[in-house]
Structures are given as C-alpha cells and as structure tokens.
Design a protein around this nucleic acid. Structure first.
Lengths: 107, 107
DNA sequence: TATATATGCAGCCAATTGGATGCGCAAATT
DNA sequence: AATTTGCGCATCCAATTGGCTGCATATATA
C-alpha cells in the first residue's frame, strides 16, 4: 500500500473530512452525516487518513473523535515551498524580458 | 475523468516531473531519461498534467517543451492556506493549557 | 525522396480504489 | 440481562490507474 499524504488528499471526500475536523474533532458518525456515503465508507477514508498520520484518534467511551494532525499538512506545504520562490520571484516585466531574449536567440 | 490538481500530484512520478520542469522546460524524451518508465508512460503522465493545466506545451519543430504552470501550484497552496493559520496560532503552551481545561471538564 | 527522430494515441492488462453490504465487538442504555 | 448504539473489519464489485506494446503522424536529416 502506498499510503502517502499526497495520495490521501487526492480524494475530494477525504479533503472535505480534513476540512471538517480542522475546525473541531469529530466522530465517524457525525462526519458521515455531512456526506452521501455510508458510515463504513467514511470509516474507510478515516483509516487511510490515519495510516498516513493525517489524523489521530481520541477514544472517548465507545466514540472515537478524529482530529487533524496539522503537522502532517506541513509536509505538503514543504513540497509546495520549493515552487513558492518561483512565483514570488516572477514578475510580469521580467517574464516579458526573458521572452524577448529568447526570441532574439531564436533568430 | 476526474483530473484535478490533487489527483495529479498524487503520483510520485508526476511530482518528480513537476520538480524537474520547474527548473527548466523539458521534452518528453529528455524527461523519460530520468525515469525507469518508458517514454509513452511519461507521455501519459504529461497528458494528465496538461489536462489539469499544471503544465503547458511549447512546440518547437518536432519537439514539445513542457513547462510548469506555476499559477496552478498556487491552487494547492490556496487549499493549504486554510490550515496554515491553525499551525501558526498553535503554540505548545496553549496546547497544554487547553488539554488541562479539557481534563478538568471531564472530571 | 527515403530514413531517422520526436511525439501522441489506442488498446491491453494487472493492481488499486472507492463504494456498498454484512458481519462482530465493545460500550452505553433500558 | 437484554437491547441499542458506535465503531472497525472482511468481502465483494465496478471503475480507475499506471504500466506496457504497437501503431500513426509530423518534422528533421541523409
């Protein structure tokens, strides 16, 4: 099983789950009320999220509260960071200039 | 076909392609030299990346240079942004305090 | 003009995925 | 003690995915 963070957030339902529990910890039952899928299907999604440590469980009697592991989101942010410097250092003017230089070289 | 940015970056090979062309535009042939997969497989990955507009083509004779669409990466960053305020406003001290309050309430 | 090179597309296949259903188990509630 | 509630797990299934091979097409090159 691959089970990495990027594969986990590929599914729209799982992203929605993440967004919901980011606000407050929730049980599988409470979560499934927000979706058309069955509780078991949501449970399966939570398993994927747990396996890649994007969420953690907090047992409370027979209920299990799922809570976001914000640090794991940072992992995605870390991957994005390598491109951030590109769009931060890119200005329209500079773009035009480079394009012009390229055209001259092509001739 | 789903073909959204999150599904696109779920595959490790596609993430590697993105990282490579972020430095400089590359042809499918040049790209496939960096992987064990065949040129056609890389081409298929490039198709996925093109369809969700993470890359754009620049035709040059019989060669096609693939170039990163940095703006599309921002879309992922935008999704991450909603969680950034959580980890920025979260300090260990505050965490401990909240945990203590919760324990008191549980009693 | 014939050949080599660069590429995309169609089709095939095994593996994975997201969904449902039907359990079993543990904790509350009656 | 019996029942209800909350949950995870195993299994099944159709759809998707990532990889391959074998083309067809377009552009360079001999």
């Amino acid at each position: 099983m691959r089970r990495d963070v990027f594969q986990a957030i590929a599914d729209p339902t799982r992203r929605a789950i993440i967004a919901l529990i980011a606000i407050q910890a929730m049980t599988p039952n409470a979560l499934s009320e927000h979706f058309d899928s069955t509780r078991q299907t949501i449970s399966k999604h939570l398993r994927v999220l747990t396996e890649c440590q994007l969420v953690k469980q907090e047992h409370r009697g027979r209920e299990i509260y799922y809570q976001l592991e914000v640090d794991k989101i940072k992992e995605i942010d870390k991957w994005i960071a390598q491109f951030r410097k590109i769009w931060e250092n890119r200005y329209d003017q500079l773009d035009d200039l480079l394009l012009t230089i390229q055209h001259i070289q092509d001739q």
